[in-house]
Every structure is written in C-alpha cells, then in structure tokens.
Amino acid sequence: MIRQNNSRLQAIRDAVNQVHFNRFRFWFQLLAFALFVYGGYLAIDFGSRLPFFSCGYNQEGRAGVCYLLPLQHQLSQPWPRLFGFAGIAFLTGLLTFALWFIFLNKGWCGFVCPLGTIQDWLTALRRRMGIRYSSYSHTRFEQLTKVKYILLALMILIPLGIGGGLFSHSMSPPFCLICPARMILPLFTGDVTQFTIDFSSTAALVMTALGISVTALFLVGSFVKKRFFCFFCPMSALHYLISKPALLKLKKDGDKCTRCGDCYTVCDMGIREIADDVTTKNIMTDDCTLCLKCVASCPENGALKATFAGIPIFESTEAGFIKRMNKGNKM
C-alpha cells in the first residue's frame, strides 16, 4: 500500500517536473491579471495589504490594493498621530502585508503582479517582432541594483516628511505618483483619468509630470529589456528585507550544478549568481522574481528546486528539460 502511494506520488512529481512550464506560467499570470484588474466588478476584495501592484487607482476593477499605497498614506500622517494610536494601525497593516508575502515570497512578482505580467507581454511582443533584447553589463548591474533600495528609502522618508510638515501634501503618495501602474492598470478598465498633469500646485505638477515620464520610460524600457521596471521596484526591495521566513523558496544544490549557464540565459533579471554561485543553498537574490524559469531550464536532476515549507514542489530534471526542449519551449 505504502509502495503504491509512493509510486503515485512519484508519478505526480514527474508530471509536475515535466510540465510545459511557460504555458503554465502564461495562463497562471493571465488568470491572476484578470482577477486583480477586473475582480472588483465581481465584488472580489482581498484587502489593501497586497504584496504586489494591484493598483488602488484602478478604482473600478481592482480586487485588492497594493500595500505601498496605504503604507505611504499611513506614514504621511502627522507625527503625533503616527507615533501614537495610529502606530498600531501601521503595525497591523505591516503584519498583514508580511503574512500575505510569506505565503508566496517573491513569487507574487513572478506569477501574480499585473505590472510584471504586462512587462512579460511586452517582452513576448518584442520577441515576436524579432527584435533582440538588451542586458546590463555586470558592472552596470551592480550599480543599478541599488536603485530600488534608494527608492524604498525615499518612499518611506518623503511621506514621513509630509507628516512632519517638511513637504507638501501634494506629493502624497510619492511613489504611487511616479509608479507606471497608476497610469497603465486603470487603462484596462477604460479609465484614462490618470493621464493628466496636475497644475494645482508646483509639487503636484512635478510629481505628475514625473509619473507620465516614468510611464513612457517603462514602455520603452520593458520593450527592450526583460522585466525592466522590476529591477528598480521598491516593493521588490521591501520583499527581500522580510523574505527569510517565507514559505516558498528557491534552492540550489551546487554539487549537481555543471555551470552550463542555461539558468542565467533564461533569467529575465540577468542574475549571474544563479549560475555562478555553487555554495549558497538558498539562491534567491534581491532581484529575483521567483519566476522559476531557471528551474525549468536546468538539465541536471535536482540541481535547482522550488520548495514550499521545505517540501519540493518543482525541481529540475533531465527528463523535464528534454521534454520542454523537444516542444520548442522558448525561455
């Protein structure tokens, strides 16, 4: 009986490990996109502490709100209130966000984030048009990877400055005003109201002009560079800071790695460590979106694996690799 159960379990594992991964991910992302961009029409609401860009400015269709919006609002409260009773609301909000995040780790970025999905669609469009993609040199990569931490720091400090009366309320919420999701996601429900320049104050004028400019750069950048915006995303930086206790993890067995470089080649973020680092077990870096394309592209049995609460749920196998390659699975 036990042997029969084990063989069934093994059959399921084999089926999962040999799945047509890109097709699975495409449909998963599409469903998640539909849920979080149009779910509001079905009265679906997952709250306002979500760890990905389910944009709060998509007022009609959203099925929940990205945590960065309430976070900035809470931080921009007057200091006596923020460091008083409102501090409890801030802490409970942060805890709720952390609980959401722990469940999927940065998998929220790779599988659920609507803005990430749009970038993947732009990449697919570019590939169909036969235009080559761009990548950063290692030196440039090392420099630019710090930008998201600077944005995260500004995203916290500017609202605090607003609460303290140092900056204008017209700058609130600062990151949302420059986030391309604010303009792009409402477009999918026919809302074009975010495509305006706000002339009500100098600060509002500057922030909305900056927002429009960043959106234009987002469209151009995402077209030539895979997951262009994720590289600068402060949510990604915030994720990494609290990723230790997360349930979903990306693990690497360096002994089985041949450093063939397939994983690096398919990595949208261009993370070199995924191929070069053969000593670290928990291989997820701050730029990783846990898209698991590296696992799907690895030909070595068990060299890379995704685990949930310590249980392997998807791992690299030679059979899976061959099956995907034979199907012409483009990474």
Binding site: T193, F195, I197, F199, I212, T215, A216, L217, L219
Partner: peptide, 19 residues
C-alpha cells in the same frame, strides 16, 4: 487643474525621445 493635453504631450514626447 488637470490637463490631459499636457499629460499626453509630455508622455508622447518622452516616449519618442527615449525610443
């Protein structure tokens, strides 16, 4: 106080320039 013309104008300009 909100202008679509300026918004779309700046967006298009940046898009064309950066592209």
């Amino acid at each position: 106080y909100a202008s679509y013309a300026w918004g779309l104008g700046i967006g298009t300009l940046i898009l064309l320039f950066s592209g």
